[in-house]
């Protein structure tokens, strides 16, 4: 049964991209465990605003685990200590009375902090712009049922496609690698006949962009998949490697 708890929140405060950041600890009394983690931050911000202090800046939007906007590193885990959820789906019942909760932004060179807990994940968009698409223009496409796709293949593509681009994979990775993110998109499109045609070029272009943007090198630790809110599988990384190596050897 959900109770009311008193907690301390240790939050990373950083005024701007170049400013020196530091931790600030706030006490929150009487927080209902049925509240979501972000609602707890809302309560904290209301408290800060009431004290005429600067509220904690953080990214959030849909609050139902699909937009990929929320991005907090809570007690040593991206999206907090619960599995297969985003921060907005984390609830206060995961925490105990009297606990001190540490909240940090994603830390990765490719995701510079904008303010407090808000980071710039534009790098993921740039990777997508490099090749995360099928080159078809609007109109002039065949009938949707013209090419049958085996159900297991379509299902696997769907699982890869469920990535929400939140950045937890790179944030969790000790190497700051974006491999799972890239692999999910490359896999989805390589599995489907519509995307297969450009698969080689896509893999090369997206990996090149990823490297260029300063992400690290994957060492297959599996932290990304373990922390992925959508449980995107590590197997996608193997497929990306396969696609990429095949493309390179063909050249």
């Amino acid at each position: 049964m959900d109770q009311y708890i008193d907690i301390k929140v240790r939050v990373w405060r950083q005024a701007g991209p170049k400013a020196q950041g530091h931790f600030e600890t706030y006490e929150l009394k009487h927080v209902f465990q049925g509240a979501s983690f972000l609602e707890m931050i809302d309560i904290l911000n209301e408290q800060l605003v009431a004290e005429h202090k600067d509220p904690v800046t953080y990214d959030h939007d849909c609050r139902e685990g699909i937009c990929g906007m929320c991005s907090m590193y809570v007690n040593g885990h991206p999206h907090g200590p619960d599995s297969a959820i985003t921060t907005c789906q984390l609830h206060m019942r995961k925490f105990k009375d009297g606990e001190t909760i540490t909240v940090e932004p994603w830390r990765s060179r490719a995701f510079p902090v904008i303010k407090d807990l808000m980071v710039d994940r534009g790098a993921y968009d740039k990777i997508m712009q490099a090749g995360g698409f099928v080159s078809v223009n609007t109109g002039g496409v065949p009938d949707a049922n013209a090419i049958p796709i085996p159900k297991p293949v379509a299902d696997e593509a769907m699982d890869a496609a469920s990535c929400i681009g939140c950045g937890a994979c790179a944030a969790a990775c000790k190497n700051g690698s974006a491999m799972l993110f890239v692999a999910a998109k490359v896999s989805q499109l390589a599995l489907l006949p519509q995307g297969k045609i450009e698969a080689a070029a896509r893999a090369k272009a997206m990996v090149a962009k990823m490297d260029e943007l300063g992400f690290g090198n994957c060492t297959n630790t599996g932290a990304c998949a373990a922390e992925c809110p959508k449980s995107v599988s590590l197997a996608n990384i193997a497929r990306l490697n396969r696609e990429f190596l095949a493309a390179k050897f063909k050249d």
Binding site: W12, G21, F23, Y73, N75, G76, H77, P81, S83, T102, E104, R107, S108, R109, A110, F111, P112, V113, A172, K174, N175, G176, S177, G214, F215, G216, N217, T219, G222, A223, A225, A226, E227
Partner: peptide, 18 residues
């Protein structure tokens, strides 16, 4: 890879399942 992690390190790290 260390460079890719950026200058600030996580203050708290916890074991990740698996």
């Amino acid at each position: 890879n260390r460079a890719a992690r950026g200058n600030d390190r996580y203050a708290v790290t916890d074991k990740k399942k698996g």
